[in-house]
């Protein structure tokens, strides 16, 4: 299809080559190009510099650039592979690739582990899980007593912390997540399977029209 050929994808020239990104990921070249539509929209929503800033990420997720959310923060930090405070197009595509329906489960399990390992110690620790449960209750305007929260954390550790050392290591997490696939629900975005359908505007807008007018 001429309308989605990479030759015509001139506007992404300052970003990484879609062919390289397609080679490294589950996405085809035209899907990478369609993702550029989404990237462009998000990265121009506030700062218009072609990079996604945290506020823009929050705006895309919540329609609100000031909404503080522990998990959105974590996801943003994991997307920011170069740790420079912004997400460029290559980081965006490589990170979203983990959420592709056809990406191996092992990659999704590992990403979720890093998400939950709040302090990057290599383990999901009790205090981290406690903190995350509080955050989720807070986000949902739910109140539970400290005892009830402790109980949830205890229960979870009873199931996941197989060697009983008070922290969940990557192998324990792998076993636990494999046994409970519902835990990985958020790690698959069906939208990514038909990304060119989700962003038909790319197909309509791409090509010579904008470049030559």
């Amino acid at each position: 299809m001429g309308c989605v050929s990479s030759k015509q994808f001139k506007r992404a020239a300052e970003h990484e080559d879609p062919a390289i990104l397609a080679k490294e990921t589950t996405f085809s070249v035209s899907e990478v190009e369609a993702l550029y539509e989404l990237f462009k929209k998000i990265s121009h929503s506030i700062f218009k510099d072609g990079l996604i800033h945290k506020e823009e990420f929050q705006l895309a997720l919540f329609r609100n650039s000031n909404k503080k959310n522990l998990f959105a923060d974590r996801i943003f930090d994991l997307f920011d592979l170069k740790h420079n405070g912004v997400v460029d197009f290559g980081e965006f595509v490589r990170s979203l690739n983990i959420f592709h329906p056809e990406t191996p489960l092992a990659e999704k399990i590992s990403f979720a582990f890093r998400l939950y390992d709040l302090r990057g110690t290599g383990y999901i620790e009790r205090e981290e899980l406690y903190e995350m449960v509080l955050a989720i209750l807070n986000e949902s305007d739910l109140f539970l007593s400290d005892d009830a929260v402790e109980q949830i954390v205890d229960q979870t550790f009873k199931q996941a912390d197989l060697n009983g050392d008070g922290k969940i290591d990557p192998d324990e997490w792998k076993a636990f997540a494999s046994k409970n696939p519902a835990l990985l629900k958020n790690m698959t975005l069906p939208y990514l399977k038909d990304i060119t359908m989700a962003f038909p505007s790319f197909v309509l807008n791409s090509g010579v029209d904008e470049e030559e007018l």
Binding site: R74, M132, E139, Q155, Q159, L183, Y191
Partner: peptide, 25 residues
Amino acid sequence: RTCNAFQLISSMSSGFDLSGMFESE
């Protein structure tokens, strides 16, 4: 049915649900 903290997070967190990003179209 036992309550599991990670289940709670994955079913309730809006920040860990990236679909919102695709629904703004």
